[in-house]
Write a protein that binds this DNA or RNA. Structure first.
Lengths: 110, 110
DNA sequence: CACCATCGTCTACAATGTAGACGCTACAGG
DNA sequence: CCTGTAGCGTCTACATTGTAGACGATGGTG
């Protein structure tokens, strides 16, 4: 709604993972990136649902890529839009501002 | 459910804000910290609901503090538990790993 | 041709985010 | 004393986001 609507954590991860893949990423690559970084599994449902919602908000877009000899049907390549980039920056700024001054590892004494 | 359940973004902010306030924080201070850092308003409802859920997950705890001459009734002081600290660290690690290598400001050309 | 694998869609439900109405206690003014 | 005002926390209700798994389509393989 508002221009600075916040991103959910998983939305952030998806956006970031696309960016890391070079901004013309294949689904499998993106999914893998998230799983590696966050060390957890990402179901297809969770992944595509989030992508759809991000698209409806104008933060990602995609294009079909002909499989050209590959297996299966339509392959997509995903990109983050300027709107998505802006949202990412806003989220990061907010969290970083809170993180600054907090030394999480200093508290590590049970 | 799983030991490394992820925190929502707002939950993260609340936890971090308590920590920043010195781990024995008053509600008003915490709320203010978030509003300042994230540059948005935080309603009482949103705030306390999140605190309750965090408590149910064992990530924050609180104690009453006598107002001793102050106004109003029971005042609470909030602290983040070791469980909360661990969750914070996990979230941070995941996001940071995704952020690394992505230069958000380099993409800033419309 | 039957069968398997991969990619994306859809449905459904759980968890989180958020607002605002309520109720209580204390203090200020009349 | 009674009433108004204000701060703190509770509760209800609903919107948004997170997540899984069933389903369907397409192309390759034996």
């Amino acid at each position: 709604m508002s221009p600075n609507a916040f991103l959910g954590e998983f939305e952030q991860m998806v956006l970031l993972a696309i960016l890391k893949q070079g901004d013309r990423a294949f689904a499998l690559e993106v999914r893998r990136e998230i799983e590696d970084s966050a060390d957890r599994s990402v179901s297809r449902g969770a992944f595509y649902t989030t992508l759809d919602r991000l698209e409806r908000k104008g933060m990602v877009e995609w294009s079909e890529a002909e499989p050209s000899g590959r297996r299966s049907g339509p392959l997509r390549r995903f990109s983050v839009t300027p709107v998505g980039l802006a949202a990412l920056r806003a989220s990061r700024r907010a969290l970083e501002s809170l993180w600054s001054g907090v030394d999480l590892f200093a508290e590590e004494r049970p």
